[in-house]
Design a protein around this nucleic acid. Sequence first.
DNA 1: TTCTATAATACGGTATACCACGAAGTGGCA
DNA 2: TGCCACTTCGTGGTATACCGTATTATAGAA
Lengths: 240, 240
Amino acid sequence: MTSSPPRGQTAAAASRIAVAPLEDTSTFADRAYTALRDVILGLDIYSRPGEIRLDERRLASDLGISRTPVREAMAQLEREGFVRSVPRRGIYVVRKTKAEVIELITAWAALESMAARLTTQSASDEEIAKLRAMFATFENGRLHAKLDEYSEVNIEFHQTIIRMSRNRVLIDLAENLFAHMRMIRRKTIGESDRADRSIRDHMNIIQAIEGRDTGRAEALVRDHALGLAEHVARHADYLD
Amino acid sequence: MTSSPPRGQTAAAASRIAVAPLEDTSTFADRAYTALRDVILGLDIYSRPGEIRLDERRLASDLGISRTPVREAMAQLEREGFVRSVPRRGIYVVRKTKAEVIELITAWAALESMAARLTTQSASDEEIAKLRAMFATFENGRLHAKLDEYSEVNIEFHQTIIRMSRNRVLIDLAENLFAHMRMIRRKTIGESDRADRSIRDHMNIIQAIEGRDTGRAEALVRDHALGLAEHVARHADYLD
DNA sequence: TTCTATAATACGGTATACCACGAAGTGGCA
DNA sequence: TGCCACTTCGTGGTATACCGTATTATAGAA
């Protein structure tokens, strides 16, 4: 990320015998996007006071590239809701309000419940089996000491269901929502009673999917997410 | 769109008495985005043979601006799936495959069924009444002569349900999906038997929402959209 | 005529200079 | 000391020149 990128092999005397088929097709803008996204997601902005401003010129110089690709990356991050550009003021990292987080979770509920429906109809048994494997280490609800680890498995569980739908649109849309959820995750950890209930919900969901019970799987997934939304509505006072 | 934009009032001798409070805050990139989006949506690409290439330089000169804002607009359109940029080849308008259209409709089903759920829980009676009003002129299924008009009302109906959810995330995501649907719409028109069934579905949906029957409204909306997806799967051979 | 090697062209990607505007700093005047 | 006009500086927005490379055109040889 801070390494100055090579300027492309200028005269490689294209050998017709040896191979070099895997060109680096990624563009500076793409790499800048990835780097900046990682930085922003890692900022732990919800535990930090004050607004965080990003300076295009500074970022460009840090990345060792010009403003142009940085701007393209920023534009994309802005469209995805991570950042907000205020003309002649600066670019600020967006902190979602409680209402916005609830909307996010609700939309996620919509996407994942549809994904669960599709999964019961077309996923293979082998794929579905992976879901249960993910929770093998947590089955007895004995997880209070490793909530952080559970939190990651938790998100992965939901992401897996989405991916099993094999619907690119659902997958891509959810990807973005999950990225936002990861930012809030740190603040949600530590409520172990919720984790217990979460585990039970997940087990029921797995059972429904294994049984190809479309309606039940869909409903359980939806209610699980909506339950989280309600929990946030009630208890997430740390979101302004 | 082809007018050469003014270069910003340079020395307008800011009068402190008269008013000009409504500044034009929109940026060239924003306006270019809107213009290009309209052009693309109006291209009727699914009825046209061959690929359509867009040239940044040409577009920029047509719009009377430089490539920079055009590129930003293009980047956004690419992320939204309207356009695909091939390095050193050009920018092409995307034609969705049948499989992709089905995925689009499925995702739409997910979003709108959740919207219907929310609507039954929080929309006012006045808002809901508007839904029925939209179909006043079609109620008897006597619409064969004005299918085009119906098609517009049709999309508007679904968009209204989404909007009544008051969930910004759902609304924005659906907006994009609908834009794609509009591009395909022209090819879907003319199957009047489907229109008849569509009307009946809509009436049932309205009834469920009016009765605040959350589960039924959600299911009807979902099945209506999934029905369209299946119809496309069976009959939309014109998609590649 | 056909194939190949070389040159010209055109594209998206990138760097950079400049602009207008807002904000913050600074000086002078009351 | 406090307020106001002016200056300076910094920001994102825009224009433009340049780059490397894939494509196409062209010319020459077989």
